Simulated assay, not measured.
Amino acid sequence: MGKLYVVGIGPGGLDYMTIKAKKAIEESDIIVGYKTYIKFIESIIQDKEVISTGMGKEKERCVKALELSKDKIVSIISSGDAGVYGMAGLILELRKDENVEIIPGVTASLASASVVGAPLMHDNCNISLSDLMTPYNLIKDRVEYASKGDFIISLYNPKSKGRPHYLKECMDIIKKYRKGNTPVAVVKNALRDGESTEIFTLETFKDDNVDMFSTVIIGNSESYIKDGFFITPRGYLINK
């Protein structure tokens, strides 16, 4: 009997892949994934059969992976965590009786947060600005409610050539509820080759270098910068 591992490979650097994820990939006969993410793990899949496709072929990848897993061990990979904008949900929706195991990974907001400090220490949320799966009006509603609720906000897929203005429009929504000195971090290629960071405030924020490989983290009303680190206090020092 075969098996399908749904693997979150983390941000892309092999040092940040979980031991369980690496073991699942090593155990697998076949690796299925988006071609860009396949490149992240090339060094550990040299002897494997690889099936890779481009963007927009998510359903086809999942159907193929489930089919192959009936009599072989297969890993379908997602960057970050497979259950956060990854393949886990679609696999479970399409699954019939296949043997499936979901293996978590480090998602982009956690990877990016670790690079700039500790911005996610209190209640926080992830919001994707991609409107391929979600209407833009609903995305803006979510940004507004999260801003009003004082959540730290991590924006995934913040800017693309087809959506050049969404990030600015959503930052304008956030500005209605946050002070101008609220810290904002832009982390590109977190924990992998090409990593870069920029720290702004809401007042000084510029999106010139933001792209689909970036995560934008906006602090809450208590967030601040100390010695170059982006910190959101949890409240441990209140009574000290």
Rank of each mutant, 00 (worst) to 15 (best):
K48P: 03
K48S: 05
K48N: 07
E49I: 15
E49A: 12
V50Q: 03
V50C: 07
V50Y: 02
V50I: 15
V50W: 00
I51V: 13
I51S: 00
I51R: 03
I51Q: 01
I51D: 01
I51K: 08
S52L: 00
T53K: 15
T53C: 01
T53R: 15
T53V: 05
T53M: 15
T53N: 08
T53H: 11
G54C: 04
G54R: 03
G54V: 11
G54Y: 12
G54H: 03
G54F: 06
G54W: 06
M55E: 07
G56I: 05
G56L: 12
G56R: 08
G56W: 10
K57C: 12
K57P: 00
K57D: 04
K57H: 13
K57V: 05
E58D: 14
E58T: 05
E58C: 06
K59R: 14
K59W: 02
K59I: 15
K59C: 03
K59A: 02
E60W: 13
E60L: 11
E60Y: 14
E60D: 15
R61I: 05
R61Q: 10
R61C: 04
R61Y: 00
C62Q: 01
C62W: 07
C62V: 15
C62E: 02
C62K: 01
C62L: 05
V63E: 15
V63R: 14
V63Q: 15
V63D: 14
V63S: 12
K64M: 14
K64Y: 13
K64F: 12
A65V: 08
A65F: 09
L66G: 13
L66M: 14
L66A: 12
L66K: 10
E67A: 13
E67L: 10
L68Y: 09
L68T: 09
L68D: 07
S69V: 07
S69Q: 00
S69Y: 00
S69G: 06
K70H: 11
D71Q: 12
D71A: 08
D71F: 08
D71R: 04
K72E: 04
K72S: 14
K72D: 10
K72I: 01
I73Y: 02
V74Q: 01
V74S: 01
V74G: 00
S75C: 10
S75Y: 05
S75Q: 07
S75P: 07
S75H: 04
I76P: 00
I76Y: 01
I76T: 04
I76R: 06
I76V: 14
I77E: 05
I77H: 02
I77Q: 03
I77S: 04
I77R: 00
S78A: 10
S78F: 11
S78N: 08
S78I: 04
S78Q: 06
S78W: 08
S79Q: 07
S79D: 13
S79R: 09
S79M: 06
G80P: 10
D81I: 09
D81R: 01
D81F: 08
D81E: 05
A82R: 05
A82V: 12
G83C: 05
G83N: 14
G83D: 11
V84P: 11
V84W: 06
V84Y: 02
